[in-house]
Nucleic acid binder design. Structure first.
Ligand SMILES: [Zn+2]
Ligand SMILES: [Zn+2]
Ligand SMILES: [Zn+2]
Ligand SMILES: [Zn+2]
Lengths: 143, 143
DNA sequence: TCTTGAACCTCTAGTCACTGTAGAGATTAA
DNA sequence: TTAATCTCTACAGTGACTAGAGGTTCAAGA
C-alpha cells in the first residue's frame, strides 16, 4: 500500500504528530521507511490506528489500549483479560456517573428551591455556607 | 479571635499552603498581621474558607467561587447571578453525565454480550475494531 | 531532467486545564 | 527553645498530545 504518514492521518483523522507519538510509545509499530527515511505504512496500520482512536473515543487509556491491542494481535488467546479491561473501564465510568449524580442532586435542589430574590436569602449561597443543608455527606466524592 | 494560619487550617481541613495560595489569588482577603508579620485571622475567615471548601467539594471552580463569594459579601444584591452560576455548573454536570451514560451503554453491551472464548471472537475486540457495531455515532462526545 | 514547494524528518520542550505543593533558608511566637 | 510561620520560586500531577526549529525528501509539473 505504501501510505505516507500524512495519508494515514487523513484516512483516520489522527494528527501526524500523534501518529509519531504513538510510535514512540510503542502503540504503533515502526513502519517501513523509504530510502530517504520517510515512513510508509501498510493497510494494517490504518486498521490499528482506527482501533486506537475508537478505543480513545470510548474512554480507554493508552495503557489499556496497549493491552487490548496485544490481545487483538493474538486471536488465539483467551479474551478474558480484554473483557476485564472493559469491565474495569465500565466500573470507572459507573463510579464517575454515581459521583456526578450525587452532585447533580444537590445542585438541582439548590437551584430549584431558590426563589431568587436577594443574596441574603439565596439558597445557593446559604447551602454553600452550610453543609448541614446538604442531603449528602460527601457529595459522592470517592474517598 | 486571632487565629494563626495553622489554626485556620486545622479548623477547616485546608492546608496552610493552600490558604496562602487563596490569599495570593484574592479568594481570601489579606488578614491582620502580628508585629512580626504572621497572619492572624478573625472568625469570619473560618466561615469564608469553609464556604470555599464546600463549593470546591461541589465542583465549582475557583473563578465561580470568587463570584459566589462576591455575592455572599453583598447580601442586598439580587442573587440571580449566583443562581445562574449554579445552573451553569449543573448544566456542565448534566452534560458529563449524559456523555458518560452513552459510554456506559456501549461498554455494557460489549461486556455483556461477549461469550468470553478466544480473542478472535471477542466482542470487545471486535467492537473496538469496528465502530459500525456501535449503536451511538459519537459516544456522547460533545463536539 | 530540473525545479519547486508541500510534506516529511528528528529533537526538544511546551501545552492544556486547574489547583495546589514542595522546599530552602530565615524569622517569630509562646 | 523549637514548632510554627514567613517569602519566594519553582515544581507537581494527570494523561495525551502538540508546537516549533531547522533541515531533508518526494512527486508532480514545466
Ligand atoms: Zn438565589
Ligand atoms: Zn454539602
Ligand atoms: Zn471477550
Ligand atoms: Zn463506536
Amino acid at each position: 500500500m505504501n501510505i505516507s504518514i500524512g495519508g494515514l492521518a487523513g484516512r483516520t483523522g489522527a494528527k501526524v504528530q500523534t501518529i509519531r507519538y504513538y510510535e514512540q510509545i510503542a502503540l504503533m509499530p515502526e513502519p517501513q521507511r523509504t530510502h530517504g527515511g520517510q515512513r510508509r505504512y501498510e493497510a494494517g496500520a490504518v486498521k490499528r490506528l482506527a482501533f486506537i482512536r475508537h478505543a480513545r473515543l470510548l474512554g480507554f487509556s493508552l495503557d489499556q489500549i496497549r493491552n487490548l491491542l496485544d490481545l487483538a494481535d493474538h486471536p488465539g488467546r483467551d479474551c478474558t483479560s480484554a473483557d476485564s479491561i472493559a469491565r474495569e473501564h465500565l466500573g470507572a465510568v459507573k463510579a464517575k456517573i454515581a459521583a456526578l449524580n450525587s452532585l447533580k442532586k444537590e445542585l438541582t435542589r439548590m437551584v430549584k428551591t431558590c426563589s431568587g430574590t436577594d443574596a441574603a436569602h439565596c439558597l445557593v449561597i446559604e447551602t454553600l455556607a452550610n453543609h448541614d443543608l446538604c442531603s449528602s455527606a460527601n457529595h459522592g466524592v470517592v474517598t
